[in-house]
Design a protein around this nucleic acid. Sequence first.
DNA 1: CTGAAAGCGCTAACAT
DNA 2: ATGTTAGCGCTTTCAG
Lengths: 345, 345
Amino acid sequence: MVRIKDVAKELGVSPTTVSNVIHGKKKRVSPEMVKKIEAVLERENYVPNMAGVLLAQSSSKIIAVVFCNKIKYGDKMLQDPFISEMMAGLGESIREKGYFTMLHNTSDVNEVIRMSAMWNVAGLLLFGFRKEDYDILREKLKVPFVTCDGYFDTDINGFVNVGTDDFGGGYRMTKYLLEMGHKNIIYVADDHIGCEMARLKGVKAALGEVGIDFDIDSMPILSSDEKERQQQMEDMAKAIADGTNDYSAIFFAADKYAVQAMSIFQDEGLSIPDQISIVGFDDVNYASVVRPYLTTVRQDILLKAVVMVNTIMNMINGHELPANDMKLPVEVMIRKSVRDINKDR
Amino acid sequence: MVRIKDVAKELGVSPTTVSNVIHGKKKRVSPEMVKKIEAVLERENYVPNMAGVLLAQSSSKIIAVVFCNKIKYGDKMLQDPFISEMMAGLGESIREKGYFTMLHNTSDVNEVIRMSAMWNVAGLLLFGFRKEDYDILREKLKVPFVTCDGYFDTDINGFVNVGTDDFGGGYRMTKYLLEMGHKNIIYVADDHIGCEMARLKGVKAALGEVGIDFDIDSMPILSSDEKERQQQMEDMAKAIADGTNDYSAIFFAADKYAVQAMSIFQDEGLSIPDQISIVGFDDVNYASVVRPYLTTVRQDILLKAVVMVNTIMNMINGHELPANDMKLPVEVMIRKSVRDINKDR
DNA sequence: CTGAAAGCGCTAACAT
DNA sequence: ATGTTAGCGCTTTCAG
């Protein structure tokens, strides 16, 4: 591996001059010398040693991407179709900006702080931590960071959150359901916090506009236990089959649940959307494989990746930020899982 | 940020002594001093500056994880459910070993070589490159690397491949189909190279054992174009409905195709497994959501991640390797998408 | 336009 | 048991 020193010696110039050429400060070097140096750099295939750069500079050109992902062996929780898309987007964007991606997989905030200091990272992109974690991070982290899909009680300051317009997604999907004649809608999620709650609020807002009110706590919550969840869905199926249900459409907070429900409902002989309309959220790849094609809310993961990277770059470079809590747009994908009740009148 | 020098000064000792304590070389330091130093280290929350370490040492404690992933906007090719699982496994294992993960997303081998030199990485974990790429890498990379799911014409040397027992998966699933009375089986994949080919060879071997032979090239190949692929599946559906098909079971090389086919077949009014048996490969999370539950071949992604990391560590530490082309075991997951033909006799 | 020199934080060979 | 010293590769200030 050839070093700056080496090419300097070969050409009988000083390391400074070579360094200047490398950094494009060509005003400080004569054109002929620039050419000569560039030729040798090229020929020798010069590659900077980042350790040296890191030590001599203050910043590191490293962006830390941190996932708070607890591994539980034997379950498929980790099989998230979005992660690969997000990763690819992040990786490419970060590289484009001339930075490097350091990946961390931990649920321990202190680990994050520690490694961020060790490597003197330029900024961090954080996924899946909880509110309390962010408080610690804001306090102890001296570099900018961007969170993804966070929801916070207090005003965000000291960092930026890039999220999805969950409220809007819930709202617009509900409007669509209303248009299709559905007035009795239930929203089914695995919890009522963060984005699940925002989506639910969107549902409530849309329903509120047409004078329908409901208690948020009355909406069913899906168990995190696979078996129990299946049972819950079977119970719903039975109610629908019996006609003892009081809703004509179910809005699942995530496609994966919508798809699972569709299967279970069909097991019970239910016809979708004739007997029950179903919609989801996310537009994962199998949403358009499943039958009937699932009507759902789509978000643009690649866009989210790019926005996150652009944002952290702006923060690193001390630029003015447009906002510190962004909500990226969503799109209602109308497919085949909703019945138009109006038509039957 | 406190440095070694600082704590040395505070205690009136030399940096070397502090460094020795940090590295657990306690034989070289008096027990009292060790305690004192450790106390200050703790109190000051000492964190090593990796730039310094990197520069002073030869190796870097960095493992590069490189995905060859071309981003094509607008398609969902990137939505790979395994990646997140693989990432989580890799991230955790690498961290456990005291190493750091540097992530790269590129299809350009030279980028890989370049960055590996820049950071003086200890080893690389490579995903999704082609045979030709590996040849270049073997030649130019001076550090150990491990590939995932690679298939090579020539003997592997200079690196290690961690794959899946694709042949065995194809073989055992076919044996199962034979047990269920299926003799006319087709294998459907999107190409006939790498693991797809190995699975196909497994099919051929199992069939060969009972005296059934077929020409590998006669097996249908799925188009990479979504629309065309759909058409192909519809054509299959029609043939099955007409009874003009000459097979009773279809072995899809990937669950995603199996699931798509199931939907399309059911659109055409086909009943699975009564009219046609279907099996897949991978056991992605929605394989057990879809109806009928998909019988498929499961591989253990987390295990693969751990094996890759252990392997690269062994290589880095110059240990003897058990093999340079590993095939991790698979498991046939018997569910509901195969009909037992014997029963009908 | 070019160069000399110091220094970033850490390690390790070599004293003592 | 502890210290001295040089040096890893690069940037940067200051001087020529």
